[in-house]
Amino acid sequence: MLKIGLQLYTLREEMEQDFEGTLRKVAALGYKGVEFFHYFGRSAAEVKQLLDELGLVALGAHRPYDALLNDTEAEIAYNLEIGNHHLIVPYLSEEQRNYEEVAANLKIIGEKCKARGAVLLYHNHDFELTDRYGDRTAFDGLFEEVPADLLQVEMDTCWVHHAGYDAVEYINKYAGRLPIIHLKDLKKHEDGSPETVVLGEGEVNLKAILDAAVQAKVEWAVVEQDYCSRSPLGSVEDSLKWVKAYANQGGNVHV
C-alpha cells in the first residue's frame, strides 16, 4: 500500500525555528514519514530518538549534490543512523548541468551507497525534461546511463507535468525503479509561471498519478509545496485532507 510522507522543505522556516516541535506537529497531522533536507545541527542520534518517539519514518533525504559527491561516507553514515536508506540528489545548479559528468559522478556515489546498503536517487525538476543529453531528455539520459542498481528515480510528478509530459506515462515507464514520487499541485499564472498550491487546488491530475503510483508499486508519495501562499502547516494539513478524501473514495493509500 502506498504510504504518504512529507518533504520538510515545505516547512523550512518552521523547522529552523523549532525543529522538534515542527516534527511533532507533522506526526500529529498523520503523516507516516518525512523526507529531510537539512538537520539544523542535530546529531543523527538526536534525530533518530525523536523519530522513534513520534513513530515517524525517515523515508529519504535531499542532500546537496556536492555533499553527496565529496562527503559521501559521512552522508551515508548519518542517514543510516537515522534509519534512512534513500539519499537523494535534489537539484543541479546551471553550472552543474554537464550531464555526462553528472552521470559519471552518480555512478561513483551510487556504488558507495550500494556498498553500504543505501540507495541513491535523483529528484527532477522541469529542466531535466527540457535539457538534452545527446538525443534524449536529460531525465531519460541520466537514468539510461546509470544502471538501476546504482540509481533509482524520485519522480516529481508536478514538474513532469509542468514540462509538458504525461506524469502517468512517466510513472509507468519507470515502474520498478521508482520507490518515491513527489505529489505536488500547481496553477499557472497568465505569463505561464507556476505557483505550487495545496493538493486539489491546481491543475495536476493527482488522482490519476496516485492510481498509477499504486499500480507501479511506488512505496512513498511525498507531499511537497515549494512555496505556500498561506500558512505552510495549514497547507500541508489541507493537502493531507485531500489525500484522505482520495483514500475514502477507494484509493489504496495508507493514511
Rank of each mutant, 00 (worst) to 15 (best):
Y174A: 10
T10P: 03
L54W: 01
H62T: 14
V253P: 12
A118G: 08
V168Q: 12
V146C: 03
K184I: 13
V218S: 10
H162I: 07
L233C: 02
F37L: 13
A167Y: 14
S193C: 09
T130I: 11
T10L: 08
R63K: 08
Y133C: 04
A163H: 13
A148I: 12
V160D: 07
G5T: 06
L2K: 04
G250C: 07
G134H: 03
M155Y: 10
A212D: 10
I171K: 02
R42Q: 06
L50T: 06
D156G: 02
I180E: 03
F40N: 01
R63G: 04
I209G: 09
R12I: 15
D71A: 00
Q7K: 14
S239T: 10
Y174D: 06
H254Y: 09
V255Y: 08
W220E: 06
V34L: 00
R230Q: 13
V119H: 13
Q49E: 13
H38Y: 11
G234L: 08
W159F: 06
H125I: 01
E169S: 12
A115E: 02
D66V: 11
Y39R: 04
I4L: 07
T137I: 06
V236C: 07
A175K: 07
Y133T: 01
A104Y: 09
G60N: 07
L120P: 12
A208Y: 14
F40E: 03
N70K: 07
E94D: 13
V160I: 07
V197T: 15
A61H: 08
P64H: 02
E16V: 05
L8S: 04
T157E: 05
D156N: 05
G134W: 02
E224Q: 11
V119D: 09
G21A: 01
L2H: 05
E190R: 01
V160N: 12
E100R: 14
I180N: 01
L199Q: 09
A77Q: 05
I209K: 10
D191S: 02
A167K: 14
T137Q: 04
A213D: 02
I109W: 00
Y133H: 01
N252Q: 11
V26T: 11
R132V: 05
H125E: 09
W220H: 02
R12V: 15
Y227G: 15
V236K: 12
A212W: 10
H62M: 15
K112I: 06
D135F: 08
